[in-house]
């Protein structure tokens, strides 16, 4: 099976629920995702949350972010695009999990759930392009 689906959402915390619903719908297409669907939805939502929180500092904007979910050769690929402040990949690290404090867990969750996480510099209309990959 191969598929590719994309949708744009407002850059706002209220979009997170819609993003999760979109991902759940897409991942319901095949039983192969059944046991990991909740985790993948969490990873995607954490990445989207990071866009709202960090790329836009939680400030109101009329911008959209874009989510593409595709599956090919047993590899699930999620592309997130936004037009916020350019991310500096070397500054994005999960916090030390032994350090018990609120905040900073999202990146840790993404790393735990996905097999590959990378930023891509691409010639598009977007500023940031984050790619999350999970192999099946």
């Amino acid at each position: 099976m191969t598929f590719s689906e994309g949708r744009e959402f407002s850059v706002h915390s209220s979009s997170l629920k819609e993003i999760r619903s979109f991902a759940r719908e897409v991942l319901a297409k095949d039983n192969i995702f059944k046991s990991t669907s909740d985790d993948v939805v969490l990873a995607l939502a954490e990445a989207a949350q990071n866009i709202v929180k960090h790329a836009y500092s939680g400030e109101a904007t009329s911008d959209n972010l874009k989510v593409d979910i595709s599956f090919e050769n047993n590899q699930l690929k999620i592309d997130l695009y936004d037009k916020g402040v350019p991310a500096i990949p070397t500054n994005i690290r999960p916090r030390n999990i032994e350090d018990i404090k609120p905040g900073g867990l999202g990146t840790f969750f993404i790393g735990q759930i996905m097999d590959e996480v990378m930023f891509k510099t691409s010639a598009t209309d977007w500023v940031n392009h984050l790619i999350l990959i999970k192999n099946y």
Binding site: L42, A45, E46, K101, G103, G104, L105
Partner: peptide, 16 residues
């Protein structure tokens, strides 16, 4: 049914 890192932060903050 669902809790993300923000929800976990509320649990940590409340606990502390």
């Amino acid at each position: 049914q669902y809790m993300d890192s923000s929800g976990i932060s509320v649990l940590i903050e409340s606990h502390q």
